[in-house]
Write a protein that binds this DNA or RNA. Sequence first.
DNA 1: GTCCCTGCAAATCCTTTGCACTCCT
DNA 2: AGGAGTGCAAAGGATTTGCAGGGAC
Lengths: 131, 131
Amino acid sequence: MKTLKYSRQRESIKACLMARHDHPTADALYAAIRQEYPNISLGTVYRNLNLLVELGEIQKLTCGDGADHFDAVTTPHYHFICKNCGQVYDMSLETMNNINQQAQKYTDNQIDSHMIYFYGTCKHCMQKKAQ
Amino acid sequence: MKTLKYSRQRESIKACLMARHDHPTADALYAAIRQEYPNISLGTVYRNLNLLVELGEIQKLTCGDGADHFDAVTTPHYHFICKNCGQVYDMSLETMNNINQQAQKYTDNQIDSHMIYFYGTCKHCMQKKAQ
DNA sequence: GTCCCTGCAAATCCTTTGCACTCCT
DNA sequence: AGGAGTGCAAAGGATTTGCAGGGAC
């Protein structure tokens, strides 16, 4: 097992993600962090994001719009994705009653994780369209 | 609006996907169809898969393993993905009770579609590991 | 004949990786 | 010093696209 060393870049990436309420892509995060560390490289951003995902400190969201998104909230929750603007919103839902039960058909273990995405047009986009 | 013309390639792609019970990637489907049409190109497979998705005749699954998968079943259902082998299984669950209700927070419309993925290790892989 | 569809290859987008160098411990 | 982390640029994988020729109607 590798020993983890401190890096100001990693701290900055984590801090930056936690400060946001949207779910930025690696590239969007890169752009934001460049304001503080103009020399940081995109490769470093990707490397650290993947590391943080492995550590369970952040979550990766693959919503199907090409680029992965990242989320500092790791407790189970769901997402609403606007088909118009691509914005990813957090959704909270009651615990998923019979899902673990259903999953016994496929695995003897627990479900490790899940990804739930709902697609539609968000209110914000509907307003813009109405104008 | 474009007029749709018949193409034997498109028919073959659709037929091939419908005949399968797994959820192949574009590349896997390409390999299968090549047996019947050795000259078909990967670009054509992608073009037609996207067209069929637009027509609502098939479904695209973005499970987060790099490549998109395709599914001939378009009725709402869920997926179990083995973290070990990447196999995608169909799952059926009762109708999602309060989900549309919850979604009113984000959209005034109905939810257009949703993607639900559960991750774990499938029984098949557990057996192999045990050997 | 017209316009859609194809095969091919090049281009694009997102992400990962190899390498020499730097920074933590 | 030792090894993890970085910046850079090149490589990689998946998907899209431009173009000239072929096929449907």
